[in-house]
Computed example of a mutant assay.
Amino acid sequence: MPTPEVNYPHQLNSTESIWIEGPYSSSTSYMFNCEHVVLIGAGIGITPYASALECLMYYFREQQTVCGKCRHVNYNHEAIQQRKLQKVDFIWVNRDVENFSWFLQLLNDFENEQLTYLETLRANNTTPKRYIDFHFYFTSLKSNNQGMIGYAPFDFAANIYENVSNRDILTKMRTKTILGRPQ
């Protein structure tokens, strides 16, 4: 049965469309057959993505070579460019800070692996292209964009922590956690 086309003209060009299908099987069954994948989960609902992200990180590490003398890291960039999956957006919405904690080591490892990969691209005078982008949302606190005085102390502490450590105060990752719900 054909899937209906869903257009959102306020978000997409008139030539773009979104197809939503399924669910037919596990959420990651066809992930490696696509060019761009968006993984969305809330709370502990991101559990199915743990093995998928571990697999992605394993693939990166499989393409890695380390010099035995100087410990310099390099990647087989040609093999990475030839894979079908080129981009992953990982969106995780949480209302409880503790939900971030159990999965963060894997995400932090992946973030560090990607940084190493991007550094090797820069060293080879190649334009760095991010492979995965993390988008974290913490819904128990609202953004202080509307000047809500109640959240000012948290925003102040979070901004200082981020400037000093180059890490997010909630996740301790380089990726900044967005307060409030996704638009």
Score class of each variant (00 low, 15 high):
Y58T: 13
D155H: 05
R83N: 11
D155K: 02
K87C: 10
K129H: 13
N13E: 12
H77A: 10
Y24N: 06
L56I: 15
N125W: 03
F103T: 01
F100Y: 08
E113F: 02
A79V: 05
Q105Y: 10
Y151D: 02
Q114K: 11
S17K: 14
S14N: 14
F156C: 15
N7W: 01
Q81V: 13
G147W: 00
G43H: 00
L12D: 09
V164Y: 07
E35M: 03
H77F: 10
M57N: 15
H36T: 12
N144A: 10
Q64T: 03
M57G: 12
E5W: 04
F90S: 02
T126S: 12
H135A: 01
T47R: 13
F60Q: 14
L118F: 10
G150F: 14
P48A: 02
V97W: 15
D155V: 07
F154C: 09
S101M: 11
L104H: 09
F103D: 02
F32Y: 13
L53A: 04
G180N: 09
T3R: 05
S17D: 10
Y161C: 01
K129S: 13
D155M: 11
S14K: 15
E111A: 04
Q146N: 14
G68F: 00
I80D: 03
K84L: 07
N74W: 05
M173K: 08
D96Y: 15
F136R: 03
P23E: 06
N159Q: 15
L85P: 04
A52R: 04
F138I: 01
G22T: 08
V73W: 01
V164M: 03
G147V: 00
D89K: 05
Y58M: 14
Y131F: 15
G180K: 04
Y75M: 00
Y24K: 07
N33D: 14
K172C: 03
N166F: 11
Q64M: 07
L39K: 14
V38P: 06
L106D: 01
Y117C: 10
R95D: 14
V6F: 07
H72W: 12
E111P: 05
K87I: 06
I132Y: 05
L121N: 08
G180D: 07
T3V: 03
R130W: 12
F154E: 08
F90V: 03
A152H: 12
K129G: 11
T126W: 01
F154G: 04
I160F: 03
T127H: 13
Y59G: 06
L56G: 08
L121P: 08
F32M: 12
A158G: 01
T120H: 09
F138S: 05
T116G: 03
T3P: 04
L121Y: 09
L56K: 09
A152F: 11
Y151K: 06
S26N: 08
V88L: 07
A123P: 08
F134V: 05
Y49T: 00
S27W: 05
I169R: 10
T177Y: 02
H10F: 11
M148Q: 13
M1G: 15
C70T: 06
P9W: 04
P9V: 03
W102Q: 00
F154M: 06
L170Q: 00
Y75W: 08
T3K: 04
N33C: 10
S29G: 11
K69I: 10
V73C: 06
Q64I: 00
Y24G: 06
I178T: 12
S51I: 08
P2D: 11
I46H: 00
A79M: 05
F156L: 13
